[in-house]
Design a protein around this nucleic acid. Structure first.
Lengths: 238, 238
DNA sequence: ACCTGAACACCGTTCAAGT
DNA sequence: ACCTGAACACCGTTCAAGT
């Protein structure tokens, strides 16, 4: 019972080469290369064009080869997601003074990382961030909150709150397809709201311009501020 | 230019029958029936077993028939998502007094609706809620917040915040597959955290029991409370 | 108006076989 | 250890044709 968990998505299968093997050849594929190629394919062709076969073709390899490196598409998606999360810069674990600002920085960084791979966002959406990079991020956030004086439970839910917000926000802002810019999407959304049958959704139509007149960055900051002040309100003694 | 927008997912194609047709037969399929059957198929076989062909089989119809009622799978998914959202009960639009409590009720209702169709959750995750039920929900929430004294922009972002939180939370709590109960998933998560390489993620491992010792309902309420108090902090005059 | 047969152009994945 | 050929069991979608 001391072996590693069998079902987790993460234990990368051992990639040690047998040292006794005389006729060594470099493997043509690496997990890292596969993930890089997958991100490129996503960027160039979009999410719905992604397939294992296309990915293999891009790597100049027959498609069954991928299955030596990766159990299945889902596992590859786990790796891709973790790679994207890994591009979120983490501030050096500093003092407890400005926890709120540091959290905001992390949130912005995660959003930027996701926007840099907009076509990969749909595949991040429902996925728990349990890859090494995701865990590192979680640990950093948890550390920040604990350092600030939050009790363990609140620290935990603070992390989740932040995560849900960023993933939810970016998920929606990229929902209309990666072809258009964020601002173009905002305008489309505004038009959609403005075109609703008059009087059917009075509050929504009233909100339509207020919601869309400022940019997406602004909106992100607004929600982020609310979220952080909500957290601050639960800080115990101080 | 007065015709309805061509690309929106929502304008249900006109389903009026020609009144002059003499030999009338009832159509064997309806959009509503298709959606119902789809939800049943999801519940019985799970998300990854879902296919248009299986759905057609369940309806005792050949699969191309579906394409007379629905443009493509994506459009069907829009309909399914809206049906699930439609099961969220909306409190009667009451006075402004307890906006926070009413918002919480809506959030709980939406979570329950999603959990009642756990296998449909992955398909809700990245999707904007622009169906009639989604719009109704948005309008109600917006109305609540405006009635409470929030300005239009804050009302808008309040709605989004709530939505992201609920969808994010339920997305994660159902992420490990619909086969297991929520509590079983919590234990699995706890085990995952506890089994992390010692010392690699100190804060996470420290949090692992605190995070999982209370049930998911508790955790949901905690985050919800934080979110609502964050919103309250932005209420202007009062 | 509504449904079907037949077909197109794909998928993810397995597995015996090569090197 | 790593990659391939060939195949299996599917997909979503189209379209001419039936009623």
């Amino acid at each position: 019972m001391t072996d590693r968990p069998a079902d987790g998505p993460l234990p990368p299968r051992p990639r040690r080469r047998a040292t006794t093997d005389p006729a060594r050849t470099e493997p043509r594929l690496t997990r890292a290369e596969i993930v890089r190629a997958a991100l490129r394919l996503l960027a160039e062709q979009g999410y719905e064009a992604f397939s294992m076969r296309r990915l293999a073709a891009g790597l100049e390899v027959k498609n069954p080869s991928l299955y030596w490196h990766v159990q299945h598409k889902e596992e590859l998606f786990d790796l891709i997601a973790d790679a994207v999360v890994g591009e979120c810069p983490l501030p050096a674990p500093a003092g407890a003074e400005d926890w709120s600002g540091q959290l905001a920085e992390i949130a912005r960084g995660l959003r930027r990382a996701m926007l840099a791979h907009a076509a990969a966002v749909p595949l991040l959406s429902g996925r728990p961030f349990l890859g090494p990079n995701g865990l590192r991020l979680a640990d950093r956030v948890a550390g920040l909150l604990r350092g600030a004086g939050f009790d363990d439970r609140t620290a935990g839910h603070g992390y989740l709150l932040l995560l849900y917000y960023v993933v939810g926000f970016v998920g929606q802002e990229t929902a209309f397809g990666p072809g258009e810019t964020g601002e173009a999407r905002l305008h489309a959304m505004h038009r959609t709201l403005a075109e609703l049958p008059a009087g059917a959704y009075p509050h929504l139509t009233a909100l339509s311009t207020a919601i869309t007149e400022r940019g997406l960055d602004d909106r992100f900051e607004l929600g982020l501020r609310g979220l952080l002040s909500g957290l601050a309100a639960e800080l115990p003694a101080r």
